[in-house]
């Protein structure tokens, strides 16, 4: 075989509803590294892409949130398996985006371990955070966490794969579906991660990834009336204020994680799952016939 074989360049597209469409806007931007290498032409996603992704996320939420927690755990574990198998691809992609070889290797390993961590939480956080409440009347009363719904996520520029995984995993472990805006300057890993997701039995629409400018796309997520929560994992404070103001139109749950270093122990906990849960409390009377009323 010829040694000067022409390599095949990969086309990076968006990930919406389990498909890889190009942006409807037809726009693209040049992803480069510090050496000035032209890495890829990324989709410069639009507000319309965000809206399409939200429609997919809402449609997928019904099934995903109702799925057995055990099954969600298996699917998250499956994502970790797939990522492990493609470690080298992710390492070389990260290296092409200016991450050192050692850091890239660690970032991929941490990302896999983080998925395994949250896979285990899928059927446990309910027991840790749910309660049976000893009300004074003859009622059975219990509270359980339930998914908030469709969650918009703005990821970080730094540690592009680990930040992305650390933000997505607790949201979907808790039964939410997500629309994610990944790193703009280091975007390759996000779309390759979409390929991993697509091979991991994750139903289409549970995770949607739109590359592009956060300043343009985050407000579209924030003002959309069918998004229930917004996770600001980005660095910029400017963006937050704008997002919060737009997010008040339908009282979004807005959480900001600027200070979190995803590389440390601080970067994983069931409290990240809890941030995107609602508490439902159910009451039911207990029959009170023939003597003392039973209580829980």
């Amino acid at each position: 075989m010829s040694t000067n074989r022409l390599s095949i360049l990969k086309t990076y597209k968006l990930y919406i509803g389990g498909q890889f469409p190009r942006t409807e806007s037809g726009r693209s931007y040049k992803a480069t590294n510090s050496k000035g290498d032209h890495l890829a032409n990324m989709c410069w996603g639009s507000k319309k892409d965000v809206r399409d992704a939200i429609v997919s996320a809402r449609a997928a939420w019904k099934g995903w949130s109702a799925r057995a927690a055990f099954n969600r755990g298996q699917i998250l574990y499956r994502i970790a398996e797939m990522l492990e198998g493609r470690s080298e691809q992710f390492v070389s992609e990260l290296v092409s985006m200016d991450v050192t070889a050692q850091d890239a290797k660690e970032e991929v390993q941490d990302s896999i371990d983080r998925l395994v961590y949250y896979a285990g939480w899928c059927d446990k956080y309910q027991q840790v955070f749910g309660t049976v409440n000893p009300v004074a009347s003859s009622h059975f009363n219990f509270s359980v966490p339930e998914s908030t719904g469709v969650v918009g996520i703005v990821s970080k520029e730094a540690s592009p794969l680990l930040s992305l995984v650390s933000l997505i995993a607790p949201a979907i472990a808790g039964g939410n579906t997500v629309v994610v805006i990944p790193s703009y300057s280091k975007p390759l890993a996000a779309i390759s991660f979409a390929e991993v997701i697509n091979d991991s039995d994750v139903p289409g629409g549970v995770i949607n990834i739109i590359t592009g400018k956060a300043t343009e796309l985050a407000p579209a997520l924030a003002e959309h009336m069918d998004v229930n929560a917004l996770v600001l994992g980005n660095e910029s404070d400017e963006l937050d204020k704008d997002a919060i103001l737009k997010g008040t139109h339908n009282l979004k749950r807005i959480v900001a994680y600027h200070e979190i270093n995803w590389k440390t122990e601080q970067g994983q906990s069931p409290y990240f799952i809890l941030d995107l849960q609602e508490t439902k409390t159910t009451w039911h009377p207990i029959e009170n016939i023939g003597g003392a009323g039973a209580k829980y």
């Binding site: 000893p134 009300v135 509270s143 409390t281 159910t282 009377p285």
Partner: peptide
Amino acid sequence: RAGVVWANTYNKFDPTSPFGGYKE
């Protein structure tokens, strides 16, 4: 999609029972 659901009862309250809403 609601924070408190009363089944075969209504408008019951207790200090041990969490109260609050979903959505708006």
